[in-house]
Amino acid sequence: MVELTDNPICTDQITAQVTSPQCGAVVLFLGTTRQLTDGRETVTLTYTSYAPMAQSEMEKLEDQARSRWPIGECVLIHRLGEVPVGQASVAVAVSTPHRRDAFEAASWLMDRIKELVPVWKKEHWATGSTQWVHPGMTKNLEDGTLQ
């Protein structure tokens, strides 16, 4: 199950969705908004997406994970809009018969989400400035302008 949502991520609901009598292991990973990055303070993050493609890329990842591991249930959720410090922006949950597969599948899914799914975060720093996060871009880009 794949979802993009503007609402807070409900972990009880996700855990219930992936828990299965055929599975002895449930792994739930949450990516949460961190307050400090390299000594700079974040107030909040805002997320935007290319929604149709983000949805289809996440569905492909679920299919690929199911072909690699004996997954019972799988939930991938990315929150969009504002995600304040301490709240979850992404959830990856899988259940498998045994724990090693659940750990491996969840880790693989999270890595692929960060690499492939067209979602972008914007830092809102405590200083009042904002900055799109575009990993690997060489220019120092801040407040939407080239410096």
């Binding site: 997320y47 990315h78 799914v117 067209p118 975060k121 990993p135 690997g136």
Partner: peptide, 10 residues
């Protein structure tokens, strides 16, 4: 067609 800057979800 979409132009996609380096993604930063998660």
């Amino acid at each position: 067609i979409a132009c996609l800057p380096p993604v930063s979800g998660g």
